[in-house]
Design a protein around this nucleic acid. Structure first.
Length: 770
DNA sequence: ACCGTATTCAGCGCG
DNA sequence: TGAATACGGT
């Protein structure tokens, strides 16, 4: 068994796997088989007799944890691997906090506030403090609080930290510290933790309770941290204290792929590992198995421009492959068309599946032009990183019910559901409750539960409505431990009126919402049944699985989307950030323009710019066979047509590895086979980007390969209603209307196969059939 | 309580 | 441009 494992590894990989005792760091270049090393290392530990309960593996995403677990199960061939503590920092420490949190005054059923809950709470606090929400922007305040927690700053130490408070005062936000204090109190009162608290409180727990620290140090004899370059300070501290006893710590990462500094990741954690653990070993995985030589070299030539990095030489034995290709479009719309067209051709030439292709962009807002063009070519695509299932309103509404049932003090959830579906408890009433709760220093639920005694001044009708609501929630709560998750969930969805409310909404969106609720209920049913065990007679013997268990299961889940196995044949569209860890044969990195990629916000300091460069490095190294980079000379940004310049990063690619557009003889004008009549004005082709090109002695090029020219002037003039025509893409059809004159002449054509289309004749590839 | 309109804001995003 | 929220009228 063991020998088989090692056979599949190169020397560096094998050494990294074998080194089990003492601190070690694995620097894993892009495509160098990092996951393989991680899984084999874990498998190796189990093979040499380490108890899976003594192994802790921390990953960056839930998905990474799941994938790894699966692979290890295959490798080890026994169920032992299931007992390894493997998951994200957040999920592992949430689990520990459910057990140990009482020491910090948290019940085991504490709620976890997501970003939206946190923001809403901050917004409310700002309102309660009568501050201007424009000045105290919830997003900004939350970032402030988040980075405070990440750097282990409590509300108290924040208020005493002159640097922090001065910065706030200078920014015109002297009350930030007070908001933080209030926010922390409210979370505590609600028996809730936000995402940062899961880490922050774990750190406090380990710091202040030596017996807890001791217990987990003894438990986690072997610790493994993936994506170490993306850990922030509190994560670093937690790992450090857990590993302090035996130092069997292995961290894996690639400084060149650190792209999350903007949210607190500290690249120095990996750069300083050597100082932290003088007795360490370093293993460098430098052979890339993923990409062609051209891609690896192109990426290397870019990343060389960064100062902060660990020295390494990424190389590959793979074929040379093709050079990186540069595509220049006149507009963002055209960029979409050109990229979609390129994918179409590549796919047809090679008879390739759609899933071989990915379009990567810097910002989500860029996806639209690609969507449109892909749709027009009938190429299936999927956008990643949109609104995930668990963030949808209807799902959050139902989950909020669950959360209130489980934890009555969960104020964010309470506010969400107290008047949904509408039951006549409006803003005014809610404000009274909030005020009263704050006056008495109790939770909002406690005010409600004791409506008579709490001195809440509302009229009899409202009082009645409140009492009905309370009674309903209490009746659900009474069933929490006796009824299984699915039955209770169904009951809540029905008797709270959510299903009815959605059922009555017959709009497509309403229908989708209804279906989403159904899907959630199905998931709960799965959960309920999956975990039930029966004896030989089919009698159920295991205890029922309850709703609070389900909620703990999903509390930290975000990517529910990955489970559509049936339809996998689509082009992937996502941000470069979202593409981290993935690979595709053909990658299109689009929007390679100054101020976009690199982002305009990164241009002021070197470290931000270096992070952008690493991001581009990540983008390039996703590709196995071929990379195309593209940019537009004009782009709509915030509603304005803005001229753009090619990204400095493109120019950093060594000329040997990139192919610039070839010179073209004529045909200066782009053709827009699918342009809708009356859409955006076309841009003129004179921009800084163009000037830049001339400087470099590069040549202009036709934008789209013409398979067929647009209509002749003569045909355009002759076209009349009733004529039979043929379109390159739409096929045969009949003209049913003609309007406009000269260059703006438009025709409405009823096509046999695709229905009615309006075409701008100067661009349409139409021929007269008769 | 609810709906349509005005206004504002826009960076990537793990848990 | 367009999504999300705030506002103001019924």
């Amino acid at each position: 068994m063991e020998k088989d494992i090692f056979k599949e590894l190169n020397e560096a990989q094998r050494k990294a796997v074998e080194h089990t005792e003492g601190p070690s760091m694995v620097i894993a270049g892009a495509g160098s088989g990092k996951t393989r090393v991680l899984t084999y290392r874990l498998a190796h530990l189990l093979n040499i007799g380490v108890d899976p309960f003594n192994v802790l593996a921390l990953t960056f995403t839930n998905k990474a944890a799941r994938d790894m677990k699966e692979r290890i199960l295959q490798l080890v061939g026994s169920d032992d691997a299931r007992n390894v503590w493997m998951g994200t920092f957040h999920s592992i420490f949430a689990r520990i906090l459910r057990v140990e949190g009482h020491r910090l005054g948290f019940p085991s059923n504490f709620s976890i506030y997501d970003t939206e809950d946190s923001k809403r709470l901050i917004r409310n606090i700002v309102k309660e403090m009568k501050l201007d929400p424009k000045v105290y922007n919830p997003n900004h305040i939350m970032n402030r609080i988040s980075s405070a927690k990440t750097s282990l700053t409590t509300p108290h130490s924040y208020s005493e930290n002159a640097e922090a408070t001065n910065a706030d005062t200078m920014a015109g936000k002297p009350q930030t510290s007070a908001i933080y204090t209030r926010y922390a109190n409210r979370l505590k009162k609600a028996d809730a933790m936000d995402f940062d608290d899961l880490l922050f409180n774990t750190y406090i727990l380990l710091r202040d309770f030596p017996d807890v620290l001791y217990k987990y140090q003894k438990r986690f004899k072997y610790i493994l941290v993936d994506e170490y370059q993306d850990t922030n300070h509190v994560q670093y501290m937690i790992v450090k204290s857990l590993a302090a006893d035996n130092e069997n710590l292995c961290v894996v990462g690639d400084d060149a792929q650190s792209i999350y500094a903007f949210r607190g990741a500290n690249i120095r954690n990996i750069l300083n590992f050597k100082k932290d653990y003088p007795d360490h070993s370093v293993f460098k995985l430098e052979q890339n198995y993923r990409s062609t030589k051209n891609i690896v070299n192109a990426a290397n030539s870019v990343i060389e421009n960064n100062k902060d990095q660990i020295k390494k030489t990424i190389w590959t034995d793979n074929d040379d492959g093709k050079q990186v290709e540069l595509v220049r479009a006149t507009s963002d719309t055209e960029e979409g068309i050109m990229v979609a067209d390129a994918i179409f051709r590549e796919k047809m030439n090679g008879q390739l599946p759609n899933s071989d292709f990915a379009i990567l962009y810097r910002t989500n807002a860029q996806s639209r032009s690609f969507e449109e063009s892909l749709r027009k070519l009938n190429i299936p695509y999927r956008i990643y990183g949109g609104l995930s299932f668990y963030k949808r309103k209807e799902i959050k509404d139902l989950l909020a019910y669950f959360r209130v049932v489980i934890n009555n003090n969960d104020e964010e959830s309470l506010q969400r559901i107290i008047n949904y579906p509408a039951r006549g408890i409006g803003q005014t009433t809610m404000e009274k409750i909030v005020v009263r709760a704050n006056q008495l220093g109790v939770s909002q639920w406690e005010v409600l539960e004791n409506t008579a005694g709490s001195g809440l001044q509302v009229n009899a009708g409202t009082m009645n409505k409140l009492n009905n609501f309370i009674t309903m929630i209490k009746s659900f709560r009474a069933q929490l431990k006796t009824v299984n998750a699915f039955d209770l969930a169904k009951k809540i969805a029905t008797s709270a009126g959510i299903l009815r409310d959605l059922y009555e909404d017959k709009t497509p969106e309403g229908l989708a919402r209804y279906e989403n609720i159904e899907e959630l209920l199905n998931a709960i049913k799965d959960f309920t049944e999956q975990k039930i065990e029966a004896n030989e007679d089919g009698e159920i013997v295991s205890p029922i699985h309850t709703l609070d268990e389900f909620m703990q299961d999903i509390a930290l889940l975000t990517d529910a989307d990955e489970k559509d196995k049936n339809d996998n044949n689509h082009v992937s569209l996502m941000t470069v950030h979202a593409a981290k860890g993935l690979e595709f044969p053909f990658v299109y990195v689009v929007g390679m323009e100054e101020n976009l990629f690199p982002s305009i916000m990164s241009l002021n300091n070197r470290s931000d710019l270096e992070e952008e460069r690493r991001l581009f490095y990540v983008a390039l190294t996703r590709a196995m066979k071929h990379v195309t980079v593209s940019y537009a000379e004009m782009r709509y940004r915030w509603g304005n047509l803005t001229p753009c310049e090619v990204s400095r990063f493109v120019e950093e690619i060594d000329d040997k590895y990139i192919e610039y557009p070839r010179k073209v003889v004529s045909q200066p004008r782009a053709t827009f086979p699918f342009e809708k009549a009356g859409s955006r004005p076309k841009s003129k082709i004179s921009s800084p980007g163009f000037a830049n090109y001339q400087k470099k002695g590069l040549k202009r090029v036709s934008n789209l390969e013409n398979k067929q020219p647009a209509m002749s002037l003569e045909d355009m003039e002759n076209l009349q209603v009733g004529m039979e025509v043929r379109h390159q893409r739409f096929g045969k059809g009949k003209v049913i209307a003609v309007e406009g004159l000269g260059g703006n002449k438009k025709a409405t054509v009823l096509f046999n196969n695709v229905g009615q289309k309006q075409l701008l004749l100067k661009f349409a590839k139409l021929t007269l059939s008769k």
